[in-house]
Amino acid sequence: MDILLLVSIAQSILAATWRMATPLIYTAIGEIFTERSGVINIGLEGIMLIGALSGYVVTSYTDSLFLGISSAVLSGIISGLLFSLFTVTIKANQIVVGAAFNMIGTGLTGFIYRTLYSGGSTDKLVLDTFPSIKIPLLSDIPFFGEILFQQNLMVYATVVLVPLAAFILSKTAFGLYVKAVGEHPKAADTSGINVTLIRYISTTIGATLAALGGAYLSMAHANQFVEGIATGRGFIALAVVVFGRWSPWGAMGASLLFGVFYALQLRLQAMSGNVIPYQFLQVLPYLATLIVLVSLKGRGAEPKALGKPYKA
């Protein structure tokens, strides 16, 4: 095979890697805050769907990406506060509440989408998505230019998000509180930290970022909402958090690894024609998740109070 062709294939796979990693990065970084504070949210899939739909609906009616993203953020905040209400205040089983959130996310978004868009005009269906922004000069760098400097705003934002999250968790008082509450809520409480408040904030940060991860799918990756558009990414993000050992940088690395599988899947699908049945490629990210989980020996980094409601 032509060497130039190989290079261009590698280039397109790597460029797609970052794009495909992006929704996982948002969602996993958010879940790191949630889990570091001692709350596990397995309802990420449902919250991603809610974010994807609200961003899509508002954008399609207002033609404003900014308003779309704002409404996704708002839907994430509401989801996060509701999740906290049930898990932190009511102290219900977090796994059960998460499972319920997934059902509500699936049912509600499907219901609203079909109500608003079935039989309606089709011109509203497709959005103008986040455009890819070429960074002057840098985007002209051979090979790496297209991979790193011709992405859309939501992809670039991960460059800020990851270090910011790492900084907040390791260098600020709030980050310290989050970790204290997730490791030893009793001790944190005794030393005057408001366990309930910290868990509300952390869980809401998590849900908001998951909603943004979902909005990325309908507003930047695809140009419309599809029922169940998250296709398991909410659960893969849970694996990403574990694989990244609850650290933002680790989560970014793990997300990029999954991004490779998604990108490979897309590229091979386009290249293979019908030689390989598309299902064999479609299944790659899910198999990769299983393999990643199996290869994790001795986790250890898990917050000690994870999943346990705090009773003062």
Binding site: F86, A92, N93, I104, T106, G107, G110, F111, R114, E227
Partner: peptide, 25 residues
């Protein structure tokens, strides 16, 4: 009535939330 039947999933989710909330209280 053309009411999308996927709403059932959401109803079930709300049922679960009510059950767990009630069992606590």
């Amino acid at each position: 009535l053309k009411v999308p039947s996927v709403l059932v999933s959401a109803i079930q989710g709300i049922v679960i939330l009510s059950v767990v909330a009630f069992s606590v209280y």
